[in-house]
Computed example of a mutant assay.
Amino acid sequence: MEAYIGLGSNMGERISYLREAVRALEAVPDTELTCVSDVYETEPVGYADQDSFLNMVVVVRTRLSPASLHGHMKQIEERLGRVRTIRNGPRTIDLDLLLMDDVALDTPELTVPHPRMWERAFVLIPLADVVRNQSQLLATTHEHLDRLDGKEGVTRWSNFNWRDESERSAN
């Protein structure tokens, strides 16, 4: 199955947290990282009294169930110091399972597709980077993006050379 994961960080060395999360996702059993978006700096949504975020989306190919992949994602957040005190508040790292093939799931622990992804420019803009070969998903992403306000709060921050990062961490 192919899964799309949103990543965000707005505490400390934000790019370092993103790099560490990508490395940790690469190490998840039965999972292969296949694509990453550029990194975008975004204004906070919801709780506004916090620093700007760096956001990106990665694509993985996995044999794991949505619940199992989600469990690994929560463990990565915990290892990287994620503390949940304020809803939509500051965080070292946030990993959200956005989409997973045609899976539709709604449990107390996990909802796929992510219930608010179509309302968030900070998700849709990097998602558009990684769905270029999937015309229907790209069209749907752009349809939702065209209807959204607040896109000016999302600016490209840098590219993310994950293959180079991965090769360096292996040495």
Rank of each mutant, 00 (worst) to 15 (best):
A104R: 14
D129N: 13
P108M: 11
H144K: 13
V123W: 00
V123D: 02
F122T: 01
R116K: 11
E143W: 04
L145C: 03
V103W: 03
T111W: 03
E152Y: 02
E143P: 00
L148V: 08
D106R: 09
H114Q: 11
G150L: 10
Q136I: 03
V130I: 14
E152S: 10
P115W: 04
M117W: 11
D129E: 09
T140C: 06
D146S: 15
D149H: 10
T107Y: 02
T140A: 15
W118V: 05
R147M: 13
Q136N: 09
D149V: 11
H114V: 06
L127A: 10
L124A: 04
V112L: 13
A128V: 02
G150F: 08
M117C: 11
R120C: 08
T155F: 02
V130M: 11
R120Y: 03
H142K: 15
G153Y: 09
V154L: 06
A104H: 12
T140G: 05
R147T: 14
L137W: 13
M117R: 04
L145K: 05
V103H: 03
D129I: 03
S135D: 12
W118Y: 14
S135G: 04
Q134D: 15
H114G: 07
E152H: 08
L138V: 01
G150Q: 12
E143S: 11
M117T: 05
T111R: 15
T140Y: 04
A104Q: 14
E119P: 03
N133D: 15
E152Q: 15
E143D: 12
T141Y: 01
Q134P: 02
P113M: 06
P126V: 08
T140R: 14
L138E: 13
F122R: 03
R147C: 14
T141H: 09
V103Y: 04
D129P: 08
S135M: 05
H114P: 06
